[in-house]
Computed example of a mutant assay.
Amino acid sequence: MRIKEIIVVEGKDDTVKIKHAVDADTIETNGSAINEATLERIKLAQEKRGVIVFTDPDYPGERIRNIITQHVPNCKHAFLSKEEAIAKKGKRGLGIEHASVEAIRIALQHAQQQTEEYKGEISWDDLLDAGLIGGSVAKSRREKIGKLLKIGYTNGKQLHKRLQVFQISKGDFEEAVRQMMQEENK
């Protein structure tokens, strides 16, 4: 599977794992130490071929994603859930380098472009009604919804914004909520 866009990852181990999964070029941010020179390379990559931001599903990964989003508009974003990115077989760690080849391919196939112009149909009340904000199960439900919609885990405020910037329709949201509820009732 060939990826036209350049994939932005955090480090060398991520690049190695990506190259096992797909035929693609990468830019490494060297962890959260992303600097101006790296941001300039990402801007050039976005202009020439497009960019997919694919960072680890943790705080540093989200921080890098947010920095890139602020400096380089219209990037695509790919996400792994924490479960998909946890090290296996007695190893420790969380990141793309620990994910299966299949999980990486699926995440890249579902990469979505972020846009700021869309004003979504999904309200705060919709999030509250679905138990995604407030309450003891909200965090675990946001993890499930993020995985189902392939937009990654977020807190409540970030979820509302991400639903908008990835232009998730109310129908797709409601279907994901229905599926989440069915899984919980099993």
Results as ranks from 00 to 15, higher is better:
residue 29 T to W: 00
residue 92 R to Y: 05
residue 43 K to H: 08
residue 5 E to C: 06
residue 138 A to T: 09
residue 131 G to Y: 04
residue 43 K to G: 11
residue 17 K to M: 10
residue 103 A to Y: 00
residue 51 V to I: 12
residue 74 N to Y: 00
residue 183 E to D: 14
residue 35 N to D: 15
residue 28 E to S: 03
residue 144 K to A: 14
residue 100 S to G: 15
residue 91 K to P: 11
residue 42 I to R: 02
residue 72 V to Y: 01
residue 129 D to T: 10
residue 126 D to E: 11
residue 117 E to L: 01
residue 110 H to S: 09
residue 79 F to V: 15
residue 62 E to D: 15
residue 61 G to Q: 12
residue 20 H to C: 09
residue 39 L to K: 06
residue 41 R to Y: 01
residue 99 A to R: 06
residue 76 K to R: 14
residue 167 Q to E: 14
residue 102 E to K: 05
residue 108 L to R: 06
residue 13 D to S: 10
residue 97 E to D: 12
residue 149 L to H: 10
residue 139 K to Y: 02
residue 110 H to D: 11
residue 22 V to E: 08
residue 19 K to P: 01
residue 176 A to H: 12
residue 172 D to L: 08
residue 2 R to C: 01
residue 138 A to M: 04
residue 156 G to R: 09
residue 87 A to H: 07
residue 144 K to L: 06
residue 138 A to V: 09
residue 158 Q to T: 10
residue 180 M to I: 11
residue 175 E to Y: 05
residue 49 R to Y: 12
residue 165 V to C: 10
residue 29 T to Y: 00
residue 48 K to W: 00
residue 146 G to M: 08
residue 41 R to H: 07
residue 142 R to T: 11
residue 119 K to G: 00
residue 177 V to G: 04
residue 110 H to R: 13
residue 134 G to A: 03
residue 41 R to D: 13
residue 34 I to C: 01
residue 88 K to E: 13
residue 5 E to Q: 14
residue 182 Q to R: 13
residue 168 I to S: 05
residue 44 L to M: 05
residue 94 L to V: 15
residue 88 K to T: 14
residue 37 A to R: 08
residue 12 K to H: 13
residue 10 E to W: 04
residue 17 K to T: 10
residue 161 K to H: 10
residue 72 V to K: 05
residue 132 L to A: 12
residue 179 Q to V: 12
residue 94 L to G: 07
residue 87 A to N: 06
residue 1 M to V: 05
residue 172 D to A: 14
residue 155 N to F: 01
residue 74 N to Q: 07
residue 37 A to Y: 03
residue 67 I to N: 04
residue 147 K to V: 03
residue 154 T to G: 05
residue 24 A to R: 11
residue 77 H to C: 08
residue 2 R to K: 11
residue 30 N to G: 02
residue 141 R to C: 11
residue 34 I to Y: 02
residue 181 M to Y: 06
residue 166 F to L: 07
residue 140 S to R: 15
residue 34 I to R: 01
residue 182 Q to Y: 09
residue 95 G to C: 11
residue 13 D to N: 13
residue 56 D to E: 04
residue 74 N to C: 00
residue 185 N to F: 00
residue 17 K to I: 03
residue 39 L to H: 06
residue 25 D to P: 02
residue 66 N to G: 07
residue 40 E to M: 05
residue 140 S to Q: 15
residue 95 G to H: 06
residue 150 K to N: 13
residue 83 E to S: 09
residue 108 L to V: 08
residue 159 L to F: 05
residue 186 K to G: 10
residue 154 T to V: 02
residue 106 I to Q: 10
residue 147 K to G: 09
residue 120 G to F: 00
residue 30 N to Y: 07
residue 173 F to D: 13
residue 77 H to K: 04
residue 179 Q to T: 15
residue 135 G to D: 10
residue 50 G to P: 12
residue 42 I to S: 09
residue 184 E to A: 13
residue 135 G to N: 08
